[in-house]
Design a protein around this nucleic acid. Structure first.
Length: 283
DNA sequence: AAACAAACCTGTGCGC
DNA sequence: TGCGCACAGGTTTGTT
């Protein structure tokens, strides 16, 4: 579910609500959510700490603590991070609860990690040992927003291998943060078919793809991300995003292309993922 | 090197 | 109304 724009929206919510706050107590429900280490490691690492910042790299949320450790949260398919008044009724699948003390600017809150499918995870790690403790983060590619992906860097990524564009955009080791929805929307905006070969693009197509990555991600962040019909993605206050109203191809198979008004949106499978494009205006 | 398949889980929507 | 199946925003691992 959540891709870069959704995770960035959650990050901003955390920056506004939990940064600077003290964690007095931690409850862990389902052990699977903390499987990377253990229930006790997360409780020990988070209890009696202060959250210093809210960062993001790709789809990973990173919260540095005053102990020098960092909290990593990955939402995967169905994870939600919510900040609610202390004592609120917990929904099903609330796996982690961090109690945030009241201070001069806030009443007491709880930070919840809710995740029906339990693919998501929470871990407290030492950033000095990220290579060993969280190798997937250490191997993450360039983040289009955090690292401001430039045209020369994108060209190197495209030309350095022979890959279909859709799987390339989804490869977190190359570019971090793009998922299935935005890969399709970016390729549509760039007017490129998902099965084009990365190292066979014209310089003009490379430039179009670069512009499309930035325009689509920016627009989606500005809209607070995409919330689909199941309403699984919401921000820390429980509010839905609105970029689903801006989708031009994702989830629109069989409909007339809203860009050219001539083609019909086609649905295929690429990289084992549902893929949507307009065969008329994407070539 | 890169594409493909399966695995990890639960909830929902659809056809019958 | 109920049942079974297909499918879902992600990532890892193992196989072609």
């Amino acid at each position: 579910m959540p891709e870069l724009p959704e995770v960035e929206t959650v990050r901003r919510g955390l920056a506004a609500t939990v940064v600077g706050r003290h964690v007095s107590r931690v409850e862990i429900g389902r052990e699977r959510t903390v499987r990377r280490t253990s229930r006790q490691a997360v409780i020990d690492g988070l209890t009696d700490t202060t959250i210093l910042a809210a960062n993001r790299r790709g789809k990973y949320l990173l919260l540095p603590l005053d102990t020098g450790d960092e909290v990593m949260i990955h939402l995967r398919m169905s994870g939600q991070v919510l900040v609610v008044p202390a004592g609120s009724d917990r929904p099903a699948h609330t796996h982690v609860v961090a109690h945030l003390d009241a201070d001069d600017r806030h009443p007491a809150h709880e930070l919840w990690f809710v995740d029906p499918r339990t693919f998501g995870e929470v871990v407290v790690f030492d950033p000095d040992h990220v290579e060993v403790e969280l190798p997937d983060i250490a191997r993450l590619g360039v983040d289009p927003i955090v690292d401001d992906l430039s045209l020369p860097v994108l060209r190197r990524i495209l030309r350095g291998r022979r890959r279909l564009l859709k799987p390339l955009l989804l490869d977190q080791h190359l570019i971090a943060g793009i998922g299935n929805i935005y890969a399709d929307e970016i390729l549509h905006e760039a007017r490129l078919r998902p099965d084009r070969i990365s190292n066979e693009l014209s310089t003009t197509s490379e430039r179009r793809l670069h512009g499309a990555i930035h325009r689509i991600l920016r627009a989606a962040i500005d809209a607070g991300g995409s919330t689909l019909g199941d309403a699984q993605y919401v921000d820390v206050a429980g509010a839905a995003g609105s970029y689903q109203e801006g989708h031009r191809v994702y989830g629109r198979a069989g409909q007339r292309c809203p860009t050219c008004g001539v083609g019909w949106i086609r649905h295929t499978v690429s990289a084992q993922r549902s893929t949507h494009y307009c065969p008329k205006c994407q070539t």
